[in-house]
Amino acid sequence: MLVTPALLWTLLFFVAPFVAMALLSLNFQAEGGMTVANYSQFFTNPSYYRAMVNSLQVTGMVTLISVLLAYPFAWILAEQIPPRLQRLALLLAILPFWTSYVVRSYSWLLVLAQNGVVNDALLRTGLVTEPLQLANTRAATIIGFVHFFVMLLTLTIFASLKQLNPSYRKAAADLGAGPIRSFLYVILPLTLPGVVVGAFLTFVLAIGDYITPQILGGNNELLMPQLIMMQIGRRGDFPLASALALILMAVVTIAYIACARWLKIERT
């Protein structure tokens, strides 16, 4: 059978690990013992659920800022730039995608460091007298994420603006809507599903990412992926790490269901 190898691969290296993690997180014993201690630990230990709160806050901010930055940018690319230059403009806009993930975060560290480019410029222009603490903050994590997701969202929003049937715009203009009302009543509502899908993607990718907060945010406050890695790395506490990973997955699943439901309502 043609399908068998792929199915086996998925079962062996994706489903089985999950089952293993689930069993481990419950401290499952072959003799029959089982406990939810790892889960209750998450809800009772403030430093654990604080990581989840941090993760949600950071991811929420990242998603919001990225959408707000990317939408006007995508709109300008799609509507204000002559069509023959659009492809080039878009390619330029996503060029830094091609830097390696680790390197991208490191580059922001260079920019935001105590004696980095931004502080250097601020000191030279005399805007500040002391270098600002930019790296190793929540703001740095957010900037690093936003940088990546602005590119991603520009792509998805640009695509949904381009897919929009041009006669909608013509019809709105024909019926007396100026550019602003045409945008508010027609273009924005019609591109909203594309924005929501992009925002969901941003949320999922950002909340599961370890590198950006680890490099840019430092260890002042932990996000969920950092917390999970800490259990694996320093403490070797696989059961707890498994429980935390499954909780993180549950959050993503909830976001997915909310997003899917909203899209479904929107379509009818």
């Binding site: 006669s167 909608y168 013509k170 019809a171 203009a173 024909d174 007396g176 027609v186 929107e266």
Partner: peptide, 20 residues
Amino acid sequence: MAPARRPTATVFQDYALFPH
């Protein structure tokens, strides 16, 4: 004169009804 201001109205080939 812009379409919005002139006394014409168009029925488009693909109708262009606002789906939302």
